[in-house]
Design a protein around this nucleic acid. Sequence first.
DNA 1: ATCTATCTAGATCTAAAGGTTTAGATTGAC
DNA 2: GTCAATCTAAACCTTTAGATCTAGATAGAT
Lengths: 236, 236
Amino acid sequence: MRRADFQRKTRVIVVDDNYDHASGIRELINLENDYEVIANAGNVNVALSLIKKYQPDIVLMDMNMPDIDGITAISEIEKLNVKTRVIALTGYDDADLIFRAMKIGAKGYILKTMASAQLIHALDEVAQGKVYLPNVLCSKFFDYFQNYEKNEKQNAKEDEENLLNYLTNREEEVLGLLTQGVTYKGVAKKLFISETTVKTHVNNIFQKLQVNDRTQAVLYAINKGFMNRQRVKIAV
Amino acid sequence: MRRADFQRKTRVIVVDDNYDHASGIRELINLENDYEVIANAGNVNVALSLIKKYQPDIVLMDMNMPDIDGITAISEIEKLNVKTRVIALTGYDDADLIFRAMKIGAKGYILKTMASAQLIHALDEVAQGKVYLPNVLCSKFFDYFQNYEKNEKQNAKEDEENLLNYLTNREEEVLGLLTQGVTYKGVAKKLFISETTVKTHVNNIFQKLQVNDRTQAVLYAINKGFMNRQRVKIAV
DNA sequence: ATCTATCTAGATCTAAAGGTTTAGATTGAC
DNA sequence: GTCAATCTAAACCTTTAGATCTAGATAGAT
């Protein structure tokens, strides 16, 4: 791995099972002074060994590969622990695909239908260590992202079906300790009350949460986002 | 909810405890034909009731408020279930703050130091239902996002410190039932073994996970991503 | 002033959980 | 063939956990 870094060109590997398309991209990039395509790969396995060998600066990864899907390919590249940055490339602006690609570490995402200037622009940005997402895709990403987070939270939402809302402050405190695996005796000590009082509280908690034992109570609490609620409470 | 939408102006509420700053923004926005600031709010509580009453199209929310922090404010707005879209506004480009704001549903994020043209641009984008994040902040967001996801995964990773790896298949099965709140008797029935056998397994589990009771075992399992593992196992 | 909710705590009981030891049966490894 | 790991299960015991009933103290509401 010799490195003669005097204004070395940014080295790119193109991964696309469509040879014509890969060649097109290659020529397009080679027109630029700052970039050189050092290899093409027609499938993910070849790509992985090439990346391991040459450690390119950037990989342009087609997401519609026959054998292994693009997402898996990207996460395999991430596992190699090389400095290579991946730009995903597809024909569709599927929000889920964009989200998952960015989630596992893609530094950019562009559509094949986009102008070639945009491809070069993406390379420029990513080569500088930035992330590149065209505005259209960025919007899609955030829509998906926010829905995703909303669903995560929905389990924890404050209203209607959440039996945690019927708990008193003291009961919440007790439940908080239960969710840390503390025993009756432990809770009693921490709250400076007697063990029988703790038992009373715990029994009331069971009634309100409609469960039979502490394990179920803890599971209910976790599923309904009790931990989040706790953090808020402490912050206030 | 009457809607007489004949090119009605986009209605904006500005939330900022600094009166001068809020006024500045107000005037700036009112210069535009398409927007009108219908109210200012100096604190979050006032803002919330104004938003509930007027249901503006956009809220410009300063994130550095004295009483309640901006993140809480935004999530309170989201809870109102109005169509209002929030653009966050701060002096700092703190990645964590940007990430959390977008996570809970902000549709845009801009810095006070940015040119006023950018503010209008943000309004335009958000008014159209898009998400607006300046490139600089977008990069910050993605850096944070990708690190965040990496950490999430680390908790569930298969290697080293995870005591779950020492469990035998049978013990994993038993633990799986414990994490559903099943009792000894229940586990015995489901696995067609005697209750004492279950106890033996559970005791071994406690030893291996270095815990004292089922609640702690369940909590350990959940924290170490045992549920994910289960899903995989069922899928196979 | 009375009523209701909440927090406290006692007594008493049963059921469940957990600890320890021992041991038979099976399987795969060396 | 022996060894180690695993799954099974008994006996015996101690400790928690959970259920129920009763009841005093306090605070807020009507």
